[in-house]
């Protein structure tokens, strides 16, 4: 029990007296620690609401959320949630909109200071986090508002990492970045997952990020969890993908067209390497 995130019959409504407009309905799920879980679903399906339950930013209207040994319910006092927020870091959508200090370094220091680290530790944590996100030292004293979009995003992520979370939640971390920015942010996240052994939970619209990086995927629709599965099983289920307004990754889409036209294979390719191997084998047979 101590090594996972568990939702038990979680319901949530933004207006607690009105259960007709529930943002989350009867959610039961278990996310193991040290896994990489993607959350997908169309806009308004409850993805962001779901992840905000995990660090107690939103408390379930009914039911419980367990993060390791901490339990969050409607009755949990806010004071108790403080400890949880050290453990669970959230990088929100467009986190650069929340930068506010006059230098990059001060901005990254804000989080750890706020949760009670002493001044020495704050500085060490902040500098280490900026190194982890590969942010150039010469820009530490710059105003965050003079940075490019990709750099601002790195500063915002460093601000969350500086609080030393065990669980890192990212809400559409690459939205609005160009391809170079997207690739480098995804590499950064994947490195945190592999090398720092963090638990990663990522809300995304990018199906290729699901197939490339995640080991679990949760499909949300209209406040309900439709399915928790692996990326391969999700993309093998054509109807599940379509009925939830998701798109196939381009690789999978290409493979489906091959299959429909008589080029058979047993295992659906999930990335461009697997697809290339499949085609090479077919042509060299």
């Amino acid at each position: 029990m101590g090594d996972s995130i568990v939702f038990n019959d979680v319901n949530f409504s933004y207006h607690s007296n009105d259960l007709s407009h529930q943002a989350l309905k009867d959610i039961n799920l278990k996310i193991p620690y040290h896994s990489f879980t993607a959350i997908v679903g169309k806009t308004g399906s409850g993805k962001s609401t779901l992840v905000q339950q995990i660090n107690g930013l939103l408390k379930p209207t009914s039911g419980t959320v367990m993060v390791g040994n901490s339990i969050i319910s409607n009755k949990t006092p806010d004071k108790k949630l403080f400890k949880l927020r050290k453990k669970v870091g959230i990088v929100f959508q467009f986190p650069e909109h929340q930068l506010f200090e006059d230098t990059v370094l001060k901005d990254v220091c804000f989080g750890p200071k706020n949760i009670g680290y002493n001044d020495n530790d704050v500085m060490t944590l902040a500098e280490k986090s900026l190194q982890v996100v590969d942010f150039p030292k010469r820009l530490y004293d710059q105003s965050p508002f003079n940075l490019s979009g990709g750099q601002m995003r790195r500063v915002a992520i460093a601000g969350v990492l500086a609080m030393n979370p065990k669980i890192l939640i990212l809400d559409e971390p690459t939205a609005g970045l160009d391809q170079i920015g997207k690739r480098s942010i995804m590499n950064l996240i994947y490195n945190l997952y592999c090398k720092r052994n963090l638990t990663i939970i990522m809300v995304t619209h990018q199906m290729s990020d699901v197939s490339d990086y995640a080991d679990h995927v949760i499909v949300m629709n209209n406040g309900k969890m439709v399915k928790m599965t692996t990326p391969r099983l999700l993309f093998e289920n054509y109807n599940l993908v379509l009925h939830n307004n998701l798109r196939m990754p381009e690789v999978v889409n290409f493979a489906y067209h091959l299959k429909q036209n008589g080029v058979s294979f047993s295992k659906i390719p999930l990335n461009i390497k697997e697809l290339t191997t499949l085609i090479v084998n077919k042509l060299h047979r």
């Binding site: 290409f254 008589g262 080029v263 697809l275 290339t276 085609i279 090479v280 077919k282 042509l283």
Partner: peptide, 27 residues
């Protein structure tokens, strides 16, 4: 990626549809 694996894809292919058709026919 296919060229890296020494598969010769005709340079006349300029869309996903054409590539798909070529892979299907060749295989």
């Amino acid at each position: 990626q296919l060229k890296q694996k020494k598969i010769h894809v005709p340079s006349s292919i300029v869309s996903e549809k054409e590539l798909l058709k070529w892979v299907i026919q060749s295989s």
